[in-house]
Write a protein that binds this DNA or RNA. Structure first.
Lengths: 207, 207
DNA sequence: TTTGAAATATGACAATTGTCATTTTTGCTT
DNA sequence: AAGCAAAAATGACAATTGTCATATTTCAAA
């Protein structure tokens, strides 16, 4: 399996090369110093897997990944990083990287490389723990659990759109006072204080 | 490295055992037929990695994973599946699984297992492509675009927690009137009417 | 030191909001 | 038709809210 390693610190690329080539299945064909260089090199060398740092002077690892995958949709790129940054993780996923691992746990790196070569996608350590936060799909809220009636439920949804009681009354063909009563009822059922807390609850727990 | 394999189809567990034990680093210590059995067995055997199917009669792989991780937070569990189901992926992440791979690409399975053993998290094939859809992150909100000052920004965040003006005033060491003025300012900058709309805006556009 | 611009505060005001006790209306069931 | 319970409405009330015009304070530049 032929690798290419990209990092603007030559020390890092050298070390990684040494570590990875301890595995007989792996050869490191090329070391690059920048994203730009990597894109060039990829075209010629077509390595099986690319290992790239994210932060680099010239062209960062994310855009390099993007370019490389544009050249060759079957390319496998693993991004190396020193720490967990939500923003990077996010872009890495968007861009289509096949790995996002921490430099610090390079012990299992060759296994990760091989897994990626085999078509898997690898995330280092605690990175995955972040994902659920990023995709804030909390488990489905059940109105019934709180004895919320359909009408009350509609009210909640309108509050969460920012409507005033008067506007809600119009939409629901109810009197404004009725809406207020409904509101009162919902708030006490959910143990909240005012419509703003209701809206917050809605976005945090329901949708 | 000691493995445990869980699947209600004995044929599958057998096959996996054979495939995986071709790798000299791997031994399969135990085969289980159900999630319930797996939880029991884990307690005794403490395997390094658990490979478990998701769909099973008795106790499904997800709840089994949950239980096992409750027993031993350092446990490594890889979930096996035949197809991509958003709902499963989601729960798998939540539950804290360290892998989610397709049965069909069992070729690279041993590498995946090793990578997981080394602390990585592995996703099979096209699964990751789903993630960005699941977390429908709109592009990052830029406070500067709306000339929101840091203090105003703090206010917004507190409103989005459902605090009243008085509470916000306390938290920010400001007078309640000042908070009201800040509020007024933010609302006009964002072209909103009241704090509830502000909270909605926050959850829809900012976080 | 003076000056000026932010930041912070005040007070008055009208509107909205949530609570509650009490009708009125509505739609059943008998 | 009578009776009844849920749904809808009313009205009174205090609290909160947002706006605005106007101080007061702060703090750095001139």
């Amino acid at each position: 399996m032929r690798l290419m390693i990209v990092d603007d610190d030559p020390l890092v690329t050298q070390s990684l090369k040494i570590i990875l080539e301890q595995d007989p299945d792996i050869t490191v064909d090329k070391l690059c110093q920048s994203g730009r260089e990597a894109i060039e090199a990829y075209r010629e060398i077509k390595p099986d897997v690319v290992l790239s740092d994210i932060r680099m002077e010239d062209t960062d690892g994310l855009t390099a990944t993007e370019e490389i995958l544009k050249l060759d949709p079957d390319a496998k790129v693993i991004l190396l990083t020193t720490f967990l940054d939500d923003e990077y993780i996010n872009r890495a996923l968007k861009v289509g990287a096949h790995g996002y691992v921490l430099k610090q746990d390079c012990a299992s790196l060759s296994d990760s490389v091989k897994a990626v070569y085999g078509g898997q996608t690898v995330f280092g350590g605690k990175i995955v723990e972040r994902l659920p936060n990023l995709m804030n799909r909390t488990e489905k809220f059940k109105w019934e659990d709180y004895d919320i009636t359909p009408k009350e439920r509609e009210l909640v949804e309108l509050v969460a759109e920012g409507l005033s009681n008067k506007e809600i009354a119009n939409k629901m063909f109810l009197g404004e006072g009725t809406v207020r009563n409904l509101m009162s009822s919902v708030l006490s059922k959910l143990d909240l204080r005012d419509r703003t807390q209701l809206a917050c609850f809605y976005y945090q727990r329901i949708v």
